[in-house]
Write a protein that binds this DNA or RNA. Structure first.
Lengths: 174, 174
DNA sequence: TCATACATGTAATCCGTTACATGATTGT
DNA sequence: ACAATCATGTAACGGATTACATGTATGA
C-alpha cells in the first residue's frame, strides 16, 4: 500500500499531473520509495477511482491535473498514524554478510571493503544533495531534511560498521 | 532473486529439508530476508529443477533432504561477488517522515517519539538475541554476529536520530 | 486415541519491473 | 521539418503474501 500513500502524500503537498509527480519521485522520493512510470500512472487511476484524488483540469496532450480530496487527506492521515502493516525489512547486502562464511576470508574481506567504499560514496553523494538543495523554511523542507539526515547517518554508520568487520576479519585470520 | 540465494546459502551452510530450512528462516534469517512457507517450498523446487540443489534422501512423511550441488555453490559465489542487481531500498517509516508536513506538529512529534521508542525496543530485543544465542567459534557464527551487530547499530542510530528530530520539532514550534 | 508437530503443496491476489505502444506540443 | 519533451497508457512476467488443502508420524 505504500506507493499509494507516497503518491497521495506528494499530491497533498502540491497538486500536479502524473508526469509532474514522476519527476518529483525521481528527485525527492528516489531514496525513500522509488517507483516506475507504469506503476505511478496505474496507481493514480486507482486513487481517482477510490475517490481519494480528483481531476481538476485536463490540459493539452491529455494532461490531467490531480488534486487530493478531503477523503484522500483523511485516508493519508489514517495511514500515517497507523504504522502497523508495513512491509518487512529486507536487505540483499546484509544477506550477503550473513552468508560470507561460504567464501574464503580474502573474498569476504574484499566484499566488506567494497561495502565500506560504497557507503562512503553514498555519504558524499547525500552531503552534496544536502548542500545543493534549496530547502526553504517550510515544513515540507524541514521534514525532507530530516529524512535526508537519516540517509546520512545510515551511510556513516554502515561505513563504520563495515570497517569494523574488516578489522575483525583481519584479527581472526592471524 | 535474493530469496533464491538466501535458501541456497542456508543449505550451503548445512543441508536439510524445506521444513528445517523454514525454521532456520524464522530464527536467524527473520531480520535479514524473511520468507513465507509457500515461497520457500516453491523456491526449493525451482532450485532443484535448475540443478543447484539435489534431494539426497526421502524420509518419513515425504520429507526431502536437500543438499547444495557443485553448480549451486558456484552460482552462490557468483551472486555474492556480483552485487549489482539488488532490489532498491524502500522504507515505509522514512516515507512517513517525508510526509510529516501533512500532519500537525503535535501529531508529527508524537509519531517521531513512537519511532524512537520502537527503535529502542528493537535495540533491547537485539541485545537479548546477542546474549542468548550460542555463537560458537565458527565462520557461520562470526558472520551471523556481524550481521546482528549491524542491526544493533541501525536501531541505536535510528533512536538517536528520532530523538534529534523531536528536539528540532520542539525548537521550531517555539 | 488424540493433539501436536512434521511435512509439502496449490491457488488467488497484489506489488513492482521491463518493455512496448501511442500520440501531441514546443522550440529551433 | 524534426528532435526533444510532454503525456499517458497496456501487457507480460516474476516476487511476495494469504489462505486453502492434505496427509503422516510421534508421544502422552
Amino acid at each position: 500500500m505504500s506507493l499509494r500513500y507516497a503518491a497521495l502524500g506528494l499530491l497533498a503537498q502540491e497538486p500536479g499531473s502524473g508526469y509532474d509527480l514522476l519527476k518529483r519521485f525521481d528527485v525527492s522520493m528516489a531514496n525513500v520509495w522509488p517507483a516506475t512510470q507504469s506503476q505511478l500512472y496505474g496507481e493514480l487511476n486507482k486513487l481517482a477511482n477510490a475517490g481519494l484524488i480528483e481531476v481538476t483540469d485536463v490540459g493539452p496532450r491529455g494532461r490531467k491535473e490531480y488534486r487530493v480530496t478531503d477523503a484522500g487527506r483523511q485516508d493519508l492521515l489514517r495511514w500515517m498514524t497507523n504504522p502497523q502493516d508495513d512491509p518487512p525489512y529486507r536487505s540483499a547486502e546484509l544477506l550477503r554478510v550473513f552468508l560470507l562464511s561460504e567464501m574464503t576470508s580474502e573474498q569476504a574481506r574484499a566484499y566488506m571493503v567494497s561495502v565500506a567504499e560504497h557507503a562512503e560514496a553514498e555519504l558524499t553523494r547525500y552531503e552534496q544533495v544536502r548542500d545543493c538543495m534549496e530547502w526553504g523554511d517550510t515544513d515540507v523542507g524541514f521534514y525532507g531534511r530530516a529524512a535526508l539526515e537519516f540517509g546520512l547517518r545510515v551511510e556513516a554508520m554502515e561505513a563504520d560498521w563495515a570497517r569494523w568487520v574488516v578489522k575483525e576479519i583481519d584479527r581472526r585470520s592471524n
